[in-house]
Computed example of a mutant assay.
Amino acid sequence: MHMKSLTALTLAAPASALIRFGCSQLVVERLDPLVTPGVNPSPHLHQIIGGNAFNVTMNAEDGDIGEMATCTTCQFSEDFSNYWTAVLFFKARNGTYHRVPQVPNVGFEGQKGGMTVYYMQDGLANYEQTSKVTAFKTGFRMLIGDASYRTKEEANRFRQITYTCLQDLGTRYPETMDFPKEPCPAGIMANVRFPTCWDGKNLDSPDHMSHMSYPELGTFENGGPCPESHPVRVPQLMYEVIWDTSKFNDKELWPEDGSQPLVWSMDDTSGFGSHGDYMFGWKGDSLQRAMDSPCYVNCPMLATQSIEEMNKCSVPNVVDEVVDGWLESLPGFSGGEHA
């Protein structure tokens, strides 16, 4: 979808909820309290946004992170959830790696890296946003994507994890499942959309995915019904992460054979291993109230904070390693293997 479509959505001013907001960077660290709780460091590097209750364990029995956090990097200051993805690196012709910086979306200038988050009653293509959804519950968490996937056949399991080669910051199409093969003038947007049907019982599952499902047919946008096994319709959660690959568009730096030089922090050069993690942490019933209200992009009924306040929230690094500058290997790897 091109930015003009988002503008049209804003002008349509429907009666139901779609909220879109920026979140600054909380920390860039080799921790993953969802997939490898208690493991310090985790196998690969992540970039995390949201509340400052983020830590190495975050077991469900530890309590409500919406109550434990004292600040958040997100615009809506009642949202203490944590959201994270892998980290994108550029691999130069000489074999060294450099972390690709993140830049804010249009409208969030001044935000320190991070990403843009959406909660929708319907997909962006539905201007009216007419569906009723049940907000996530305290303790809810989920994962979409698989860090080990390297082929399109594997990645087809996840229908809505894509990339957009940005001609400018308003570009929204076309989307591909693998990394763009040519330099992108304004960088690359990594799009992560989560399943929207919940079993209504489990706040998590052993693989962090089985308690969730796509609709019976197609994706969230076509309005298909949820399967009987997962009957509860929840908001479409979506991440947009803009990686400023434009800094590395000089093909003299690219591999001599011209192959694309981007690699995820789990040593994935295909792009098919893209994934996103989520831990719900909205305070009280604030998300449900927003989803039940005429909130559209902005939401006057939710408490908000300035970009300056968002940028102030952070947590200290607990893993002692260098992740910036030119690196001989990816964090957690040595000579192409995990350290």
Rank of each mutant, 00 (worst) to 15 (best):
G110I: 05
H98D: 12
I65S: 07
R99H: 04
L88Y: 10
I65L: 07
A92N: 10
F90W: 13
A86H: 05
G63N: 06
A60H: 04
E29C: 04
G66R: 11
G107W: 14
Y97K: 03
V106R: 12
T85F: 13
T96C: 03
A60E: 08
Q111N: 01
V28W: 08
F108E: 08
A92S: 10
V35A: 09
I49M: 14
A86T: 07
G107N: 07
G107Q: 10
N59E: 07
N105C: 04
P101I: 05
D32C: 01
H44L: 04
H46I: 12
E109V: 01
E109I: 00
L34S: 06
N55K: 01
V100A: 07
F76Y: 15
S42R: 08
P101E: 10
N82W: 15
D32G: 00
P43C: 12
V103E: 11
A69D: 13
G63Q: 03
T72C: 09
F108V: 00
Q75Y: 15
A60I: 14
R30D: 06
P43E: 06
F76I: 00
L34C: 04
N94A: 04
E78S: 12
E78A: 06
D32F: 01
V103L: 09
G113Q: 02
K91Y: 13
G95S: 01
T70Q: 12
S81C: 05
P41H: 13
V100K: 01
G63W: 11
R30V: 07
F89K: 05
D32M: 02
H44K: 00
H98R: 14
H98C: 04
N40W: 04
T72H: 10
F80A: 07
E61R: 03
E29Y: 10
V87Q: 14
R99A: 09
S77P: 05
I49S: 11
V87T: 15
V103D: 04
T36L: 11
I48N: 11
N94G: 03
Y97G: 01
A92D: 12
L31C: 04
K112S: 08
G107M: 14
M58Q: 09
P101H: 10
P104F: 13
D32S: 08
M68F: 09
R30P: 01
N94W: 14
N55L: 04
N55Y: 11
P104Y: 13
E29N: 03
T36A: 11
T73W: 14
T96I: 11
P41S: 02
C74V: 05
G38K: 06
L31G: 00
Y83I: 09
P41N: 06
V103K: 15
